[in-house]
């Protein structure tokens, strides 16, 4: 820990970004906060209602259910995608002629529009015509993601892993290639086995990229909307309705702007809290 004061002049260089962020994020966010304390019938008839919509949202069982579902989903995909991404990155050859092709191949799922990913899986997993659905049923498992909540969940998790593990793998690969060869030679001289190399050489050097990977995946998975909307539509019942989909139903479907704004502010605060907790814990560990 350094006791030297920071030189703050460099912050002036960030000013253009601050202005852009103010325009694209801060002002819209302030508007949402303004909406969240009013009952908006139409734009000319607005009534101040204080924290009414916040109370209503916090005591709404559907909000609480969607929130718990969201945490379950984010925790599941993070727990699977991060180790899997590292594993895939470890399997990639570092200096081969095939490496660029493999990297492009890996990046393909990342380039597909989210709507299309949902549609691909919607067809792929169908029990009557989809390759995956028919194959699973042919193995004697009665699989149908449109009627079984557990099947819908598994399909969503599988889709997310298919879509995003590449991101973790590419980031981890970038981190792995930056580890100098002498580290491995030293580990070999010390007689380290593969697990020890991973644990004591590679993982510490990957910490930076993995922090970014976890943060990106945490935020993205917490805000997931398009793919479940296309794949399951939030069903069967409400079993795969995540926060953003419930929010969209309120804001766009029912045009309840006040309650939807209060919902958004609470949603935003939780994302801010999770990201801050995670980022701080990583930075604090470094120090």
């Amino acid at each position: 820990m350094s006791s030297r004061p920071y030189d703050n002049r460099a912050w002036l260089g960030v000013l253009p970004v601050v202005l852009i962020v103010a325009f694209s994020a801060v002002i819209p966010l302030m508007t949402v906060v303004n909406y969240s304390v009013q009952d908006i019938l139409d734009f000319n008839s607005r009534f101040f209602v204080g924290f009414e919509w916040y109370r209503e949202t916090l005591n709404d069982p559907r909000f609480v259910d969607a929130f718990l579902r969201q945490i379950g989903f984010s925790a599941t995909v993070l727990a699977l995608e991060i180790p899997l991404g590292i594993f895939v990155a470890k399997g990639l050859p570092k200096n081969s002629r095939m490496t660029p092709f493999l990297l492009v191949f890996l990046a393909v799922p990342l380039l597909i529009p989210w709507n299309v990913v949902g549609t691909i899986w919607q067809i792929f997993a169908r029990a009557d015509i989809g390759l995956l659905g028919v194959a699973i049923n042919a193995m004697g498992i009665d699989y149908n993601y449109t009627s079984e909540p557990m099947h819908a969940w598994l399909t969503l998790v599988a889709m997310d892993i298919w879509h995003w593990t590449s991101l973790v793998a590419l980031l981890s690969f970038a981190g792995l290639t930056s580890i100098p060869e002498p580290y491995y030679q030293a580990a070999e001289l010390d007689g380290a086995n593969r697990w020890q190399v991973l644990r004591f050489v590679e993982l510490p050097r990957l910490k930076g990229v993995l922090t970014i990977a976890v943060l990106l995946r945490l935020m993205d998975s917490f805000m997931i909307y398009t793919e479940p909307f296309v794949l399951t539509g939030g069903g069967p019942g409400n079993t795969t309705t995540f926060l953003s989909q419930y929010l969209a139903t309120m804001a766009v479907g029912q045009f309840d702007l006040g309650p939807a704004a209060a919902f958004s502010v609470i949603y935003f605060l939780f994302i801010l809290l999770f990201c801050w907790l995670f980022y701080t814990s990583v930075v604090a560990r470094d120090e």
Partner: peptide
């Protein structure tokens, strides 16, 4: 006006 300001939120952000 599109930001739908109210006095309490204006005071809060100020």
């Amino acid at each position: 006006s599109w930001m739908a300001w109210t006095l309490p939120t204006a005071l809060f952000f100020s």
